[in-house]
Amino acid sequence: MNERFYLYDDTEETKTRFVSFMGENQRFDLAIMYSDRYYGKAVVFDIQGSRFAILGQDDLDEPGYLEHAYQLSEEDASEMRDFLQEVIR
């Protein structure tokens, strides 16, 4: 058997927030993980939809980004964006 080649293998302390809220059309169950790994951005997991993205304020301002990353309608993405703009540092 060949020796495994690691690109990296790090362990890091994280801060994770679990939050659930109701939008007009759907429930959002999110895990928001902060670490030093992604240049100050957060990893946001959509637990119900099994999707995640690395997000910062610049990504939230990008038109269509949440719609694509989380497969959301414009209305649902707008609700998620409004919430994340309050909590993403």
Results as ranks from 00 to 15, higher is better:
Ile54Gly: 07
Gly23Lys: 05
Ser50Trp: 15
Phe52Val: 11
Glu62Asn: 14
Arg17Gly: 00
Ala31Thr: 10
Phe21Ile: 05
Ser73Asp: 06
Val43Lys: 10
Gly64Glu: 04
Glu12Pro: 00
Leu66Ile: 11
Tyr65Asn: 08
Gly23Thr: 02
Glu13Lys: 11
Phe18Ile: 10
Arg4Asn: 10
Tyr70Thr: 00
Tyr34Asn: 12
Asp9His: 11
Gln57Cys: 01
Glu79Phe: 05
Asn25Glu: 15
Ala42Pro: 06
Glu79Ile: 12
Glu75Thr: 15
Met22Tyr: 09
Thr14Ala: 11
Ser20Ala: 13
Asp46Lys: 02
Glu67Phe: 10
Gly40Cys: 07
Glu79Tyr: 03
Phe45Cys: 04
Phe21Val: 07
Met80His: 00
Arg81Ile: 09
Val87His: 05
Arg89Ile: 02
Met1Phe: 15
Glu86Thr: 00
Leu84Thr: 07
Asp59Trp: 08
Leu55Phe: 06
Met80Trp: 00
Asn25Ile: 11
Ala42Thr: 07
Ser78Leu: 05
Asp58Gly: 12
Ser78Lys: 04
Asn25Ala: 10
Tyr6Ala: 13
Leu7Asp: 14
Gln85Cys: 08
Asp10Ile: 15
Thr11Tyr: 04
Gly49Pro: 00
Asp58Phe: 04
Tyr8Val: 07
Asp36His: 07
Ile88Cys: 02
Gly56Thr: 09
Ile54Arg: 12
Ser73Val: 02
Leu84Asn: 03
Gly49Arg: 09
Gly49His: 00
Arg37Thr: 13
Leu55Asp: 01
Glu74Val: 11
Gln48Tyr: 07
Ile54Cys: 09
Gly23Ala: 03
Ser35Ile: 07
Ala77Arg: 03
Pro63Ile: 07
Val43Thr: 06
Gln26Leu: 01
Tyr34Val: 08
Ala53Thr: 02
Lys15Pro: 10
Tyr70Trp: 09
Glu3Val: 14
Gln48Gly: 08
Gly23Gln: 08
Ala53Lys: 06
